[in-house]
Design a protein around this nucleic acid. Structure first.
Length: 355
RNA sequence: GGGUCGGUCGCAUAGCGGCAAUUGCACGUGGCUGUAGACCACGCGUCCUUACGGACUACGGGGGUUCGAGUCCCUCCCGGCCCA
């Protein structure tokens, strides 16, 4: 499923093969939580060069519900996205919906963020839903505390995440037997900023033998140095022949640094969110606040060297106006640009790593 | 000409004796990291202070009552509506 093509102090170059196509790594996985990207189409996403889409179990479970997706023919048929799809387990919502959930060992009781309806998601539920959705890569249901949470909290989260990982794998193995093209299952390493807990978590998970390993619980409150420090602890302990996925990261510079430490996969809402909110990434590496005053009369292209055609033909003044006027097209242009620059950076990185 | 309602920080609003004065929009500057968040935070009379804070000038103009007036009274100007 994963082939490591090259490995050096600059990073790893590899390829993940799935039923819906190959994913060259290192890769950035755009976040289309509810089976869609905000502001751009999935056709846009493909033309930007994305090789895999990330969707979310919690969100799709609430709406439209996995049976609707299944009856539509699975996530690929339902969305029209033909390339690989990875689904997050819903574990992150323990972190992000902190006021709307209650964690127990059995799983998590959520209150739907839409209408308050009670719903329960545990390891078994999450894996079953992910199988039903029909993703190519699925994730274990984990507990993600803030990275700055005290050690006792991290210990409990690691132990729970390990217990849950075991249960996830058991259900996954059962379901795998009944499926013609079952998904790959990745485990998630927790442990906050506690190096020994991270070590323990990795070792236990590796012993259970998953298809890949995700590093969770980062980019949730710690400094960049702390994040890299944890990668330095975790990555060397992961098996070379399995893909590594740093969840929720991130900034371009963070991803560059993480690649050097041996990370293969990333996802992050930041490029899209910052785009919608007016921060534009340039191919030069610079970031600009396009909605600010100086750009009102800057009629030069958004990014003359952009990998995205629309950013070469449209003026900064136009994008400034569109976003200020709350025109949807502004979000579209901004999102295309930031995602385009992000994906382009990964392509460049891959080229540099190709032997 | 008579009656009536009204003139508050760019626009729109609140305020009915203790106010540099509500709220929305606009504007300004930040922030967003496995998406609950086309979002959030702060600023938005002038000047001084790193800040706490202080000084000055302000609710159409002028005058008055009052310890104190955007708020009450008189008068003038301007606008809307109604009747002539």
């Amino acid at each position: 499923m994963f082939s490591l093509l090259a490995s050096s102090p600059l990073g790893r170059r590899g390829i993940i093969r799935t039923a819906h196509g190959d994913i060259p790594t290192p890769c950035f996985m755009p976040v289309g939580t509810g089976g869609a990207m905000r502001g751009i189409t999935l056709e846009d996403l493909e033309s930007l060069g994305a090789d895999i889409l990330l969707c979310n179990t919690y969100h799709l479970h609430i709406r439209p519900g996995e049976t609707v997706v299944r009856d539509a023919g699975g996530l690929h048929a339902f969305t029209g996205w033909r390339k690989p799809i990875i689904t997050d387990s819903g574990g992150f919502q323990v972190f992000s919906l902190t006021d709307l959930r209650d964690v127990t060992d059995a799983g998590v009781h959520f209150q739907s963020h839409l209408d308050g309806t009670a719903l329960f998601l545990g390891p078994e539920e999450s894996i079953r839903i992910q199988h039903t959705l029909g993703a190519d890569i699925i994730l274990c249901f984990d507990e993600c505390p803030p990275s700055t949470a005290p050690r006792e909290v991290q210990i409990a989260a690691v132990e729970r995440t390990l217990r849950w990982a075991k249960r996830c794998k058991e259900v996954h193995d059962e379901l795998k037997a009944t499926s013609p093209s079952p998904p790959s299952l990745f485990a998630i390493v927790q442990g906050g900023l506690e190096r020994d807990l991270r070590e323990r978590c990795v070792q236990e998970l590796v012993a259970m033998d998953f298809d890949g390993y995700a590093i969770g619980g980062l980019a949730v409150g710690e400094t960049e140095a702390e994040m890299m420090d944890i990668l330095d602890v975790v990555c060397p302990l992961l098996p070379a022949q399995k893909p590594r996925y740093l969840m929720g990261v991130g900034r371009l510079e963070q991803m560059r640094q993480a690649v050097k430490r041996g990370v293969d996969m990333f996802d992050c809402v930041l490029p899209m969110r910052e785009a919608r909110h007016g921060t534009i990434y340039l191919s030069s590496g610079e970031r600009i606040r396009i909605t600010s005053n100086p750009y009102m009369r800057d009629h030069s292209p958004i990014d003359p060297d952009s990998p995205v055609p629309s950013s070469r033909t449209h003026a900064r003044s136009y994008l400034n106006y569109l976003l200020r006027a709350d025109e949807r097209y502004g979000e579209t242009l901004a999102c295309l640009q930031n995602l385009g620059v992000t994906l382009e950076m990964m392509r460049t990185l891959r080229e540099q790593l190709t032997p």
